[in-house]
């Protein structure tokens, strides 16, 4: 050790202090407050009464019929909403990965000078408000919109493809909302990749796709994981794309929670409880991943 210490270990805690402080005060404390709220009694039409109860969680998991006097049964309504939202966010993440990885790869293989410009090109559309972008997307895909008119004029289809108010439109909207959150982290990781490794693999007669799977993917995996987290988790709670493009016919997690705070139901403890259940699910998934990653790191 000629040059001295390079260990970051003693600095780890000091370096985390700013993050702890900012998030602790402005995110953790409000969340703890909400955790408490989920165990309180709802005040009629919004607000809470400081009487501790499990009513909100009971409402989530158990049903006693429309009038509340039937035998208690498992309430599938909200579990189904969770399932559908998770499925939707999962598909969105997969789509973003399929398109986002090649895009990130493409940017990383440009000359160093132009890479920053490409990054900006990916993010420029996001200077326009999400609502406006989603409305414009809807304009493009509606029955008499440019996409359908174009396809019909070249004779590819006879009648308009019904896209608006379908799950396909919702997926398109979600994909459009979160794409850069996949591209940029992957780019950050791919840019580091040493192409000499690919060349070495090619010299050993590995096919392109074997090289991609066996050599590239392990190196850029942290970027892919970061991208998946950044797309999946926000997509779980998204409601603008489902509402505007899907027709808001069914609650998603995001709109269900929104309704409890801003809709006429005004049930804060239930909204808080749904959020806490969502939070614990995501938290569990993240911690399991972090454990697995740490174990792998030790090997």
């Amino acid at each position: 050790m000629a040059g001295g210490d390079t260990s970051w270990r003693p600095l780890a805690r000091p370096l985390l202090i700013p993050a702890w402080l900012v998030i602790g005060i402005f995110a953790l404390l409000p969340v703890l407050l909400m955790a408490v709220y989920s165990f309180l009694t709802k005040e009629f039409r919004g607000g809470v009464i400081w009487d501790f109860t499990l009513t909100a969680y009971d409402q989530f998991f158990i049903t006693r019929g429309l009038f509340g006097d039937e035998a208690a049964q498992v309430e599938w309504t909200y579990i189904t909403i969770f399932g559908l939202s998770i499925l939707q966010a999962g598909i969105c993440t997969a789509l973003c990965l399929i398109v986002g990885f090649p895009t990130a790869w493409f940017i990383a293989t440009r000359p160093a000078r132009t890479r920053a410009v490409w990054l900006f090109l990916i993010t420029i559309p996001y200077w326009v408000n999400l609502l406006i972008r989603t409305v414009s997307l809807k304009f493009l895909i509606r029955d008499n919109g440019p996409l359908n008119e174009g396809l019909m004029s070249i004779g590819l289809i006879d009648g308009p493809l019904p896209l608006v108010n379908t799950n396909l439109a919702v997926q398109l909207g979600l994909f459009y909302s979160y794409l850069p959150f996949m591209v940029l982290p992957i780019y950050a990781a791919v840019e580091r990749y040493n192409f000499a490794l690919s060349e070495a693999a090619a010299d050993l007669y590995a096919s392109r796709w074997t090289t991609l799977r066996e050599i590239v993917l392990p190196v850029v995996r942290p970027g892919i994981v970061a991208g998946c987290i950044l797309v999946f988790v926000p997509a779980l709670g998204a409601f603008l794309a489902p509402d505007l493009l899907g027709g808001a016919k069914t609650f998603m997690i995001g709109s269900l929670i929104e309704e409890q705070f801003k809709g006429s139901q005004g049930n804060w403890p239930f909204g808080a409880a749904v959020s806490m259940i969502l939070l614990s699910l995501v938290l569990m998934a993240l911690l399991i991943y972090a454990r697995a990653a740490a174990r792998e790191g030790e090997r």
């Binding site: 969340v31 939070l279 938290l283």
Partner: peptide
Amino acid sequence: AMVKGGRFRGKGASFALINLPLMVPEIV
């Protein structure tokens, strides 16, 4: 700290804390 700091107590909690704003629905 998280990547170069090796193992330390509270690392898992810190990871969860840093990502907390991501996990809480905005309206909450």
